Computed example of a mutant assay.
Amino acid sequence: MELILYMDRYEGFHEFVRSRQQSLMRTAYLLTGDPHLAEDLLQTVLTRVAAHWGKLAKGGNPEAYARRALVNQTISWRRRRRPELPAAELPETGGHAHDEATVRRLALLGALARLTPKQRAVIVLRFYEDRTEHETARLMGVSLGTVKSQTHYALSKLRALTPVEVYR
């Protein structure tokens, strides 16, 4: 009698998703600025990760692949959809008081949404995920010079779009 061992081609994938899902979701949200779109983005990317899981699990880096796919898919979607940009001013609160941190966060999220997809990706990877310029270039599939120039332009645009009080 021959013993045939069945190997699940997704072995380890479920553990990867459980351990990295929250971190990847935060990145997806920061890239898209919309919680529902972030969920769609992450689902699309995890489907791709699953399709390549055998190769990634053996010798690849599934997290790096997933993060690069998040950036690439966001840029691809933004090129196709051209979503409306949020208003430059904060909406009326209807009498609800917000603390300073909330107002700063809302102003910064509004400014982030007005960046180009590449600029937003650079800002998220460099400053939120604390990646080096080299890591950011590798994850985005661009040159180091592109990362530096996109960072410069993005920071300049953020400074122009947000009030000085946001940085205090």
Results as ranks from 00 to 15, higher is better:
4 I>T: 08
6 Y>I: 13
7 M>D: 10
8 D>R: 06
10 Y>G: 12
10 Y>W: 12
11 E>V: 05
11 E>H: 11
12 G>F: 05
13 F>I: 05
15 E>P: 03
17 V>T: 07
19 S>R: 15
19 S>E: 13
21 Q>H: 14
25 M>P: 00
26 R>D: 04
27 T>F: 02
28 A>S: 11
30 L>S: 07
31 L>N: 05
31 L>I: 06
35 P>K: 12
37 L>E: 14
37 L>F: 01
39 E>C: 01
39 E>S: 07
39 E>H: 06
41 L>Y: 11
43 Q>K: 12
46 L>G: 03
50 A>M: 08
52 H>T: 04
52 H>I: 01
53 W>T: 07
55 K>C: 07
56 L>T: 09
59 G>L: 01
60 G>A: 05
61 N>P: 07
63 E>S: 08
63 E>D: 01
64 A>Y: 04
65 Y>S: 04
65 Y>L: 02
66 A>T: 09
67 R>M: 14
67 R>T: 10
67 R>H: 03
70 L>P: 00
72 N>D: 11
73 Q>T: 15
73 Q>E: 15
74 T>D: 01
74 T>R: 07
74 T>V: 07
78 R>K: 08
79 R>Y: 13
80 R>G: 13
80 R>W: 09
82 R>S: 15
82 R>K: 15
83 P>V: 01
88 A>H: 06
88 A>P: 07
89 E>L: 08
89 E>V: 06
91 P>K: 02
93 T>Y: 07
94 G>A: 05
94 G>S: 00
95 G>V: 00
95 G>H: 01
97 A>Q: 12
101 A>C: 04
102 T>L: 12
103 V>Q: 02
103 V>H: 03
105 R>Y: 05
106 L>Q: 13
107 A>R: 15
108 L>D: 02
108 L>T: 03
109 L>P: 04
109 L>N: 13
118 K>P: 09
123 I>C: 03
127 F>Q: 07
127 F>W: 10
127 F>A: 02
130 D>Q: 15
130 D>C: 09
130 D>L: 10
134 H>T: 14
135 E>Y: 06
138 R>T: 13
138 R>E: 14
140 M>K: 01
140 M>Q: 00
140 M>P: 05
142 V>R: 10
142 V>Y: 02
144 L>I: 11
144 L>V: 13
145 G>F: 06
146 T>L: 08
146 T>I: 06
147 V>K: 02
148 K>S: 11
155 L>K: 14
155 L>A: 10
155 L>R: 14
157 K>N: 10
157 K>A: 15
158 L>N: 03
160 A>I: 02
161 L>C: 10
163 P>M: 04
163 P>D: 04
163 P>W: 01
164 V>G: 00
165 E>S: 14
167 Y>G: 04
